[in-house]
């Protein structure tokens, strides 16, 4: 039951949320609000700050730490305006040649009536498509839950890191269990079937790195994460913009396991 244990850890109260990483990693922070279309979504914090001595754009899904903030942030389930704000800030980063760092922690995009009215599917679709052509480096870190399309909307990136106990899934294990066995309580079985752990993500080429967790020494953990981010950004920016986009395209292009005629294609 490794997957289920990890799922519980990824969702555990007291686990650092998006804003904790922003506090540790970035200096001279300037939070920026609103999608300029409809509203402001507190579930996603975005802005500009220094990573070391490099100005970067940060975008973090934040679940909140107490009941008040969790309600305000909709328990980290973004609405379309949150995704549209994220895209606005990514486009801004592209204009000023700033790399983008995303922190992902969500059960999924908010499945409410008003989110549907305002085009939740369209907002996610646009983010993914625009990220695939964004002319600046993007690294995404799944710090807790990577819930389906709501996570992918911030993960069409050059690199994806998984925290050691973070999970990333096409559907919530509860949703999967309901469909498969008409029993939402078989979460543990569903989690196992879906292959949602950090190691699974590396195996299926969805993530490049697994980041060790040490929340008792959170400062040190973030200092190490900063070093990794800076060194990967240095590698990505060595390439030309067109080379970087080619690599990003290929990163997703090669994901898929299928058969064709006689042989098996795809990886692993």
């Amino acid at each position: 039951m490794i997957a289920y244990e990890k799922l519980k850890l990824a969702r555990q109260n007291g686990r650092p949320t998006g804003s904790a990483y922003l506090d540790e990693l970035f200096t001279n922070r300037l939070d920026l609000c609103g999608d300029r279309r409809y509203g402001e979504d507190a579930a996603i914090i975005g802005g500009i700050g220094y990573l070391g001595d490099m100005p970067v754009t940060y975008i973090a899904i934040d679940k909140g730490t107490d009941l008040d903030s969790r309600l305000k942030k909709n328990f980290g389930c973004p609405k379309p305006e949150g995704y549209r704000k994220a895209l606005r800030l990514m486009k801004q980063a592209e204009k000023f040649n700033r790399p983008v760092i995303c922190f992902v922690d969500t059960l999924g995009a908010y499945p409410g009536a008003e989110a549907e009215e305002r085009g939740q599917g369209q907002a996610i679709a646009e983010n993914i498509m625009e990220m695939m052509g964004l002319k600046t480096p993007v690294i995404s870190v799944v710090i807790g839950e990577g819930g389906s399309g709501g996570a992918l909307a911030l993960c069409a990136s050059d690199r994806v890191y998984m925290l050691e106990n973070a999970v990333y899934s096409v559907i919530t294990p509860e949703g999967c269990a309901t469909i498969l066995w008409k029993d939402a309580k078989r979460v543990a079985d569903a989690a196992e079937c879906l292959h949602i752990t950090a190691e699974d993500m590396v195996e299926y080429h969805v993530a490049e790195r697994v980041i060790p967790e040490d929340f008792t020494h959170f400062k040190r953990m973030c200092a190490d994460l900063k070093k990794v981010l800076l060194s990967d950004l240095a590698v990505i920016t060595q390439n030309s913009i067109s080379g970087m986009l080619e690599n990003r395209y290929e990163r997703f292009r090669r994901i898929g396991i299928y058969e064709e005629a006689a042989g098996k294609y795809g990886n692993p």
Binding site: G149, S169, C176, I179
Partner: peptide, 18 residues
């Protein structure tokens, strides 16, 4: 997305979008 293919099916969204 086809949940029977786990995370690999989610990634098809990004692959096609590219």
């Amino acid at each position: 997305a086809r949940m029977q293919e786990g995370i690999v099916s989610l990634m098809q969204m990004a692959k096609v979008s590219g």
